[in-house]
């Protein structure tokens, strides 16, 4: 299954050294094709980190489906917050194009952007 391998490699996640952040890297097009992998990346995090940090450094383009995935992540955090401290979602390293998309959709109002 060559196709799924190609998509899989587009989402990579790692826990920061202090263990408080889960960094999710998205490479290439951040779109619907990676939604399973993106979801797996944050749902599998154990223990739950304090911050989900989405690293967009290698993200070329981001579409509305990606914005939807970010909303799902945000919702997931709210869900966790019912039982313990609610994690936050932060976005970082967006290139100019991606940052523009985030601003146009005013997502900078609901996500903190580093």
């Amino acid at each position: 299954m060559v196709i799924s391998e190609r998509f899989e490699s587009r989402v990579r996640s790692e826990v920061s050294e202090d263990g408080e952040e889960l960094v999710i890297h998205v490479t290439g097009n951040f779109d619907f094709n990676i939604h399973r992998d993106f979801q797996r990346a944050y749902r599998n995090a154990n223990p739950v980190p304090k911050v989900f940090l989405v690293d967009l450094a290698a993200t070329d383009h981001l579409d509305s489906a990606a914005l939807g995935m970010l909303l799902l992540l945000r919702d997931y955090c709210v869900e966790i917050g019912r039982e313990r401290q609610q994690p936050t979602v932060e976005l970082m390293n967006a290139n100019a194009h991606v940052a523009h998309i985030l601003t146009v959709s005013n997502f900078d109002r609901i996500f903190s952007i580093r």
Partner: peptide, 26 residues
């Protein structure tokens, strides 16, 4: 959240009307 609509004045000036709100339903 839409791409900025563009108001084109009679003198040719373009005015972009940027998004000032989150998409609806968020």
């Amino acid at each position: 959240g839409m791409p900025s609509p563009c108001l084109k004045r009679a003198d040719g000036a373009l005015k972009l009307l940027e998004s000032r709100h989150l998409p609806l339903g968020v």
